[in-house]
Design a protein around this nucleic acid. Structure first.
Length: 837
RNA sequence: GCGAGAGUGGUGAAACUGGUAUACACGCUAGUCUUAGGAACUAGUACUUCGGUGUGCGGGUUCGAGUCCCGCCUCUCGCACCA
């Protein structure tokens, strides 16, 4: 009876919004630029598991914000779509033979239904899906722009290779060095790949961060990922052969302490540098390294391994012969794949030198004996001939002069950032629009032939050679060269999942345009994205790749802003409770029972500790929002997710608090339907509370502090609930404040109070600042910083008045009697502190 | 190991620039009412030897610290030998 009929209200209003296209965004030129906002969610990958409670958290936040902005008179672009190419659908296809298209669209339909059931104010006319030819047409087109600009190139690079499945694997398919599917040990295999030269944009990507309103933590992570460092390239001559071995170092000033060199096992000079006597040992070592998993190779705690190549290099500063070693602690992917080792001042070099008995020479005066441990902090140079006595800066400067003058090296900048491996040997991705012609070389598919559609295939497995399944489709692979008309073959690699998500925010602006990826006028109208909300897991890769593409498009004059996302908010992860045994292992939730507030293992009866853990399938603690929507309504789910805690912080999904939010909405419903609502004036106190509430909700909605905005609405509703007759104005204002949060309930109430729909198009209420402050304030009186008395005073009371009243307070007199007052501190409107001795 | 973030009641959490620690909600206790529901309403709910003590622990700055500084501990996330 008292239960408010959300199951009737919610579908009704969702239908209304859809039919009336209430949230359609139109490029209305009469709305000035400062009154336009683009509010974006990270679009979901439509997995088979459906929506999980983490999705609606971010989506509700942006929805509340978008609805609030519209009521404030902004023109808001708030779209949704699907990142629909990807591994799971393809793996499912391999297993079952179901076309990924079918699986994906089924999942998209589920996702769309679930998202719509929460009543978000998306402009659904702008929905995009990255696997649609109309969409990937333009992903391919942008790739062609990158290619024309010289930012795409071919290289031979290693992939994870499963010798038993005969396929390449993504990093996430490799679990502890083994293939996730068959358990076979994963190897490295070199194959031809398409690369994107993101490193050419390293400095731009770095500098661009300064102008962004992003969390400092994300900016720091991106800066570290780009990893710019300044140092020197130094050339060592190989003794005997005259080959040049180039190293990169940030501390060229320690060159006198370089007692050996190390090259990575993958270094191109390995075989040339290996002497006949050492060949057997080197081959054995290379074989060991090849069979090591990434995990083994990168385990920091492991013993250093390596082998002597048999060759020596000449240290350019002193002409000394130093041995060249091969070791896997040097990475081919960073710097030049070769280092000069300074064991006295680098922990890794020191460990290696100790193990293989290589000389350690101190060149920076430190506080330890470098034969016993490495000194890795700064010090004055010693044992360095003409650098002795200098500090780091001066020594580096002097050494660089020396290197440059003698042609031994030069200043150099290095990045941790590597070029982006852009091809995948997979079916379910955008075909790379290139043709290999024996006469003309690599040729782009002509623009008017785009989109280059994915052909149908019989099998979704990669070919035994690791090529994409597309390689098996002769009719597709064999084509004519667009340049010379001769026989040619298509590129069979596809693009990674990132490709589609790199630019989707631009397609939302003009999703049905078949002449361009986006209309320049419309692009100017909406860009940049004003607020982008999503999970912190995308802090580096997605956001860096997107920024890269955007900057390329900007340099080509195709977009009007140099950065795509002006402000970014990472929603905290919604975690779940998990149950832990004494031995720290976790028990799946369905095997846990609760009594008397304690948790026990159903099988063993062991008492378990409740801990917080990431939601995972294996723990069976993933929460699907559907059940909650069914039992409590979408408005409750929306509001609860916002009431749980601050948006940016991670928090556990603790369902026992859910009922509180439901009761709150139910209470509003009962006030509206069971109490007398009359057109009467608000009493001054209620009026004051109303103004305070508008103020608090306005400010908190603006700053995305939704949890405290909701608290304030609760305070207000609790007050209304005490009245027998409720002023209509109070209820109407409440409805307006509620409408971004619980839009269905608000629409229903708005009509109930005699208005026309939709409340979403009404004006946000305003408050009277004068009515938000109390005339009388409670002033705290402290003795030595401890609260000893409280008194009510007019808010404009002067310091003297406050002090006088405090000192004449009975309680305070008891504390000051017989003591000396040393100091008196008066904070107007707040407190009086009297320091006594 | 490095980087980022967080520790406040039985629970989720409030506390803007240092100024009444625990708003709001859950749970719990008692009561009222009832066509017994996952109801509504009212009161209470940090500890206490009633002096005080309390925001992970130990110090410091200050008239005053959850908030600032130093040193630890624990947890979460990200990255992995970056020369």
């Amino acid at each position: 009876m008292s239960r408010y009929p959300f199951n009737e209200i919610e579908p009704k209003w969702q239908k209304y919004w859809e039919e009336h296209k209430t949230f359609r965004a139109v490029e209305d030129e009469s709305i000035p630029a400062e009154k336009r906002r683009y509010v974006l969610d990270m679009f979901p990958y439509p997995s088979g598991a459906g929506l999980h409670v983490g999705h609606p958290e971010g989506y509700t936040a942006t929805d509340i914000y978008s609805r609030y902005l519209r009521m404030k008179g902004y023109n808001v672009l708030h779209p949704m779509g699907f990142d629909s190419f990807g591994l799971p659908a393809e793996n499912y296809a391999i297993k079952t033979g179901t076309h990924p298209w079918e699986t994906t669209n089924k999942n998209i339909n589920t996702f769309r239904r679930q998202i719509k059931s929460l009543g978000f104010s998306y402009d659904w006319d702008r929905e995009v899906s990255t696997c649609e030819p109309d969409y990937y047409h333009w992903t391919q087109w942008i790739f062609e722009k990158l290619y024309e600009k010289g930012l795409a190139y071919e290289a031979v690079t290693p992939i994870n290779w499963c010798p038993s499945c005969k396929t390449g694997l993504a990093n996430e398919e490799v679990k502890e060095g083994r293939c996730e599917r068959c358990g076979e040990k994963v190897e490295k295999k070199n194959i031809r790949q398409w690369m994107l030269r993101i490193t050419a944009y390293a400095d731009k990507l770095l500098e661009g961060l300064d102008e962004l309103d992003w969390p400092e933590s994300v900016k720091t992570m991106q800066r570290n990922w780009i990893g710019r460092s300044e140092g020197a390239a130094v050339f060592f001559t190989v003794d005997g052969t005259g080959d040049k071995l180039e190293v990169y170092t940030t501390r060229c000033d320690t060159l006198f302490g370089a007692t050996y060199m190390v090259i990575a096992p993958e270094h191109p000079l390995v075989s040339k540098l290996t002497s006949p006597e050492q060949k057997e040992a080197v081959d054995k070592y290379l074989d060991e390294v090849k069979h090591k998993s990434d995990l083994e190779r990168t385990d920091l705690a492991k013993e250093k391994t390596g082998v002597f190549s048999g060759s020596y290099a000449i240290n350019p500063v002193n002409g000394k012969r130093i041995p060249i070693w091969i070791a896997d602690y040097v990475l081919i992917s960073y710097g030049t794949g070769a280092i000069m080792a300074v064991p006295a001042h680098d922990t890794r070099d020191w460990e290696f030198a100790k193990k293989f008995n290589l000389p350690i020479i101190e060149v920076l005066k430190g506080k330890v004996d470098v034969q016993e441990e490495a000194w890795t902090e700064d010090g004055i140079h010693v044992n360095s001939e003409w650098l002795d006595g200098l500090n780091k800066e001066d020594a580096i400067r002097k050494m660089l002069e020396f290197l440059e003058k003698n042609g031994y090296g030069h200043k150099a900048v290095n990045y941790k950032l590597r070029d982006w491996v852009f091809s995948r040997q997979r079916y379910w991705g955008e075909p790379i629009p290139l043709i290999h012609c024996p006469h003309c070389g690599t040729v782009l598919v002509p623009e008017d032939e785009l989109p280059l559609r994915l052909p149908e295939v019989d099998k979704y497995e990669p070919t035994g050679t690791g090529e994409s399944p597309l390689a098996n489709v002769d009719s597709w692979v064999n084509c004519k060269c667009p340049k010379c008309g001769g026989d040619a073959k298509r590129e069979t690699n596809t693009m990674p999942q990132w490709a589609g998500s790199c630019w989707y925010y631009l397609r939302y602006i003009d999703p049905h345009n078949d002449k361009a990826f986006v209309d320049p006028e419309k692009e100017k109208y909406w860009m940049p994205v004003d607020l982008y909300v999503g999970g912190a897991e995308h802090a580096v890769l997605h956001l860096l790749y997107s920024r890269f593409w955007h900057k390329v498009l900007y340099d080509l004059g195709l977009v009007s802003t140099s950065e795509p996302f002006h402000s970014l908010v990472n929603q905290g992860m919604i975690t779940s409770f998990a149950y832990q045994k004494a031995n720290k292992s976790l028990v799946p939730t369905d095997l846990v029972e609760e009594h008397d507030g304690k948790y026990f293992d159903k099988e063993t009866g062991e008492e378990l500790t409740q801990v917080i853990a990431k939601m995972s399938k294996s723990l069976k603690n993933v929460i699907n929002p559907d059940d909650f929507i069914k039992n409590y309504g979408a408005d409750s789910v929306r509001m609860y997710e916002m009431f749980m805690g601050p948006l940016r912080e991670s928090k556990p999904w603790a369902t026992n608090g859910f009922i509180g939010v439901y009761r709150f909405l139910d209470r509003i419903w009962r006030i509206a339907t069971e109490k007398k609502i009359e057109d009467i004036a608000l009493n001054p106190e209620l009026d004051k509370l109303l103004n305070k509430t508008i103020k608090k909700v306005t400010e908190d909605t603006e700053t995305l502090a939704f949890n405290t905005a909701i608290s304030q609405m609760m305070v207000f509703v609790n007050e209304l609930n005490r009245l027998d007759t409720v002023p209509k104005k109070a209820m109407e204002t409440l409805t307006l404040l509620l409408s971004p949060y619980t839009p269905h309930l608000a629409e229903e109430l708005w009509v109930m109070f005699g208005h026309e729909p939709s409340v979403a198009l009404e004006k946000w209420p305003e408050y009277d600042e004068a009515k938000t402050v109390d005339d009388e304030i409670e002033i705290v009186v402290q003795i030595n910083g401890k609260v000893r008395a409280k008194m009510l005073m007019p808010r404009e009371a002067s310091k003297d008045e406050m002090l006088e009243k405090a000192k004449s307070n009975e309680k305070i007199l008891g504390w000051t009697e017989g003591k000396t007052i040393i100091k008196e501190i008066v904070v107007p409107g707040k407190l009086v502190n009297i320091v006594v001795k």
